[in-house]
Design a protein around this nucleic acid. Structure first.
Lengths: 343, 343
DNA sequence: TTGTACGCGTTATCAC
DNA sequence: GTGATAACGCGTACAA
């Protein structure tokens, strides 16, 4: 694998390397015909500027790191797609890393990206992350950083978030309007502000409609399908079933759905379900799952734009928080069946 | 963001930069105590070797590119996870790119990775890729290359594949053993060898069991859910329904399932379904979908190991093809209901 | 065992 | 308009 360099072209054309360089980074300070000649022979020789040398000189890597907790749900891949869309156009490479919901991996990833001289990092913290000192330090040093969805509020960096409170409120209110009174919430890890916000939305919606809120109505579950299954089974075993459940995400809702069906309960007749963070599977399961849709691609694009802004505004930069809007997709799993008078 | 360099350490300690460098790349040719001192002060000063300079010198990027058609199904993310697992341990960064099932993007991605001096590329070609000249050239130049699942046979590179023929054969035979006779196949894009192999497995299974094969039994569908929906609706409209369908993947099977249900058909009573490439959704849909499971993570790990082998065996390297094994997960969608004598 | 000097491929800053 | 040269940070011959 031999790579053609500026030197090769310079030698062949009997010009100086700086002239060759100028031909490529055209700033008008080169004669048109020399430029054309150089570009032509360069193409013939199969020359490509060596990006590594360029990076070394410019002290910029044009790499951006993205750290996400997992890959298996479509949420994060979709966000990453949005991120890539914007950054790729601007000439950046995107290094994607997976923390696998492990705070240890996450820290390793951050350090690895840092030592690879990425120009900035976009991340969504794990559900286990408790210590964000490193991120905080990085951010205070002015290192470009954007967090999305799962954010650490102690770190004063740019954020792209969803109004979890509002949409949890709406989702819960939707259940109330359907006529359900005994409503539970399967919550995410309380360490994440996202979980706390969704929980608060749930609680406040009940309060608004004068439905008494007791501690047993909120059950900390987790984010995985297995979590939903486990907690649902516990409730079934304890003979403590509500009329409806608002789940912190679709995945846990699927777990709950599975266990309910296994135990012979009908959805929504016996227990209604609402999820969160739209998934293409929602329309495939039976009954179809009501869920709150987040603008995944737009989250990614916005995060990328914020990061670019910070990278390019050498120094003086004030972090911004952008809140994106969503929408409630009402489907079979949450709609109260009207009494059937026809038969 | 000021970065500490070898120079800073050398100045502080009054030694030569080469001594500092030696301390890090320890080959025993340095006094133990100088080494320790240098390492200690380096740590204090927060020194990290600049990977870009290292790459420029070593003419190696320790980056590996991965190009996949899409991110939304869990198949590719899972494979990528396996790839990262192996490569990350060996000190490689993985650059992930998405071709979005576009042959144009794919070529751009390859060139972008190449010009970024990745040490090798792992890829799965798009369903649109017809011209693989560029890949062929790359491969013939000795550029490390591994293809998985969706491979281009004209390119004599290492491959990690699944025995699509065998498992399509088994899946079809399973339907035959259930007693179905009129069986259709919704095939993938014929341009992909993967599609042709699955189709051939289907055809040969029918032949083995002396079921006549007619051209209308194989319908080129595509890979997306929308494809499955469209083709299914066409069959329904044409009143041309089989007793069972073997779909090229789960996604098209979901599409078919959706349309069948919408039109009031029961699965498997009216039409049985079998998919391919296991998906966590299979157990969530109703009825649960029978599917062939592929060892996704292992595919990734194997591809990564093959690539490493080629990267490290400077020059003399013979491409290998590794065939991985799978398994048929039989679920409700394909099991023939026995006549019910109980009622 | 340590220091000097050079090269990796690029761009910017000087001269000319 | 063009050429020579230094610099980016590192690793390695070679010299000391």
């Amino acid at each position: 694998m031999y790579h053609v360099t500026v030197k090769d072209i310079a030698r062949k054309l009997n010009v100086a390397v700086s002239t060759v360089s100028r031909a490529f980074n055209d700033k008008g300070e080169i004669k048109q015909e020399t430029r054309d000649l150089i570009l032509k022979t360069a193409a013939e020789m199969g020359y490509h500027p060596n990006p590594i040398a360029k990076k070394l000189f410019q002290q910029r890597s044009f790499n951006v790191g993205v750290i996400i907790p997992e890959f298996t749900n479509s949420f994060f891949p979709d966000v990453v797609t949005g991120i890539q869309e914007v950054l790729f156009k601007e000439g950046y490479q995107v290094l994607i890393m997976q923390s696998n919901e492990s705070a240890v991996n996450e820290l390793e990833n951050i350090k690895s990206l840092e030592s690879n001289m990425v120009d900035g990092i976009i991340l969504s913290i794990t559900s286990q992350t408790s210590n964000v000192d490193y991120l905080k330090k990085l951010n205070e040093q002015g290192f470009p950083l954007v967090m999305f969805n799962r954010v650490a509020d102690e770190v004063k960096a740019s954020q792209v978030v969803f109004d979890d409170y509002k949409w949890a409120f709406f989702a819960t209110e939707h259940l109330i309007y359907q006529g359900y009174k005994k409503i539970f919430h399967f919550s995410g890890p309380k360490a994440l502000s996202l979980s706390r916000n969704r929980m608060q939305g749930f609680v406040d919606a009940l309060k608004k409609h004068r439905i008494p809120v007791t501690p047993d109505m909120v059950i900390e579950t987790g984010f995985m399908m297995a979590d939903g299954e486990r907690i649902m089974q516990q409730q079934i075993d304890a003979h403590n079933l509500p009329e409806a459940i608002f789940c912190v995400n679709d995945t846990t809702a699927f777990g709950a759905m599975k266990k309910l069906k296994q135990n012979g309960y009908r959805i929504p007749a016996d227990v209604a379900l609402v999820g969160f963070t739209e998934n293409f599977v929602d329309e495939l399961v039976e009954p179809q799952l009501t869920s709150v849709a987040q603008p995944t691609f737009e989250i990614g694009r916005t995060a990328a734009r914020l990061l670019l802004e910070q990278i390019e505004s050498k120094g003086k930069f004030t972090p911004q928080t952008i809140v994106l809007n969503g929408r409630l997709n009402v489907r079979e799993s949450s709609v109260k069946l009207k009494p059937d008078y026809s038969s």
